Simulated scan of single mutants.
Amino acid sequence: MIRLIHSSHSLSRFYMMAVARNWRFLSTDSTKVDEPFKIEEGETVNSPPPPSEKLFVLGGNGFVGSHVCKEALDRGLSVASLSRSGRSSINESWANNVIWHQGNLLSDDSWKEALSGVTSVISCVGGFGSNSYMYKINGTANINAIRAAAKKGVKRFVYISAADFGVVNYLLKGYYEGKRAAETELLTKFPYGGVILRPGFIHGTRRVGSMKIPLGVIGSPLEMVLQYAKPLNQVPLVGPLLTPPVNVTSVAKVAVRAATDPVFPPGIIDVYGILRYSQQKST
């Protein structure tokens, strides 16, 4: 028993001597073999934060545009807007957080400087009038914006277009021809980052001066009924007239998501797609 204890004690001394000897070879300073083993922490590399999203809304003081601005601000985005009148007349707190620019997409080129640093654009520009006027506002103005955004290196461009309404298309020829011309330009200049939303009748509370017109009184019930009647939309002539209305907040929600979500599919999103995306939770 005494021999076993003595043997064990000898092995322990031998082990400690071996460890000390090996540590002397591993150490960069042989005179410091008695210092405790230190673990050096790896250097932390602080990667730069991702660039912030800057959204530029064309026509931000209009019915759809104002809701787009508010939705974008609610999501924490930096928002700027361009319109012919400049600052919005809406007396709500969110409007103070928008950078308002005044400019005309058809004439003055000074508005192009407002695109500097912009990562995505949503165009809500459109209007009614004579056929030539409607083509300019819905077509030419948006085409100018699309080309300027492409040159500035904007990543994504969302265009609020309009659904086909069959016979109505012929009655508003300039309106729809302008819309389709802008769509073609967008798909050419932004094949991977261009999104076209084609809502039908957009309802919600519309401001006309100091008045508020509750379009949802008619639009909401029709939306509830017609969104489940998609097969009827294929009926010749009258089918397109049964396209379900969509709430302006739904359009704004999908537009902002399409402008900021890099995995949002490019291309044309019809009214049923708008309704579907608006019901999904944002990431």
Rank of each mutant, 00 (worst) to 15 (best):
A163V: 00
A163F: 01
A163E: 12
D164N: 15
D164L: 06
F165S: 03
V167W: 14
V167T: 11
V168Y: 10
N169P: 06
Y170H: 10
Y170N: 09
L171M: 15
L172F: 11
L172T: 06
K173Y: 04
K173T: 10
K173P: 00
Y175A: 01
Y175C: 05
Y176T: 13
K179W: 02
K179T: 08
R180W: 08
R180P: 02
R180M: 02
A181F: 10
A182V: 05
A182D: 10
E183F: 00
E183S: 01
E183G: 01
E183L: 01
E183C: 01
T184N: 08
T184E: 13
T184Q: 07
E185A: 02
E185S: 02
E185N: 04
E185H: 09
E185Q: 04
L186R: 11
L187C: 03
K189E: 14
K189T: 04
K189V: 02
F190I: 02
P191K: 13
P191A: 04
Y192P: 00
Y192K: 15
Y192M: 13
G193E: 00
G193V: 00
G194W: 08
G194F: 09
V195H: 12
V195Y: 14
I196N: 12
I196E: 15
L197W: 14
L197T: 06
R198E: 15
R198G: 04
R198H: 15
P199D: 06
G200N: 13
G200A: 14
F201R: 03
F201H: 13
I202G: 04
I202A: 03
I202D: 09
H203S: 11
H203R: 12
G204L: 02
G204P: 05
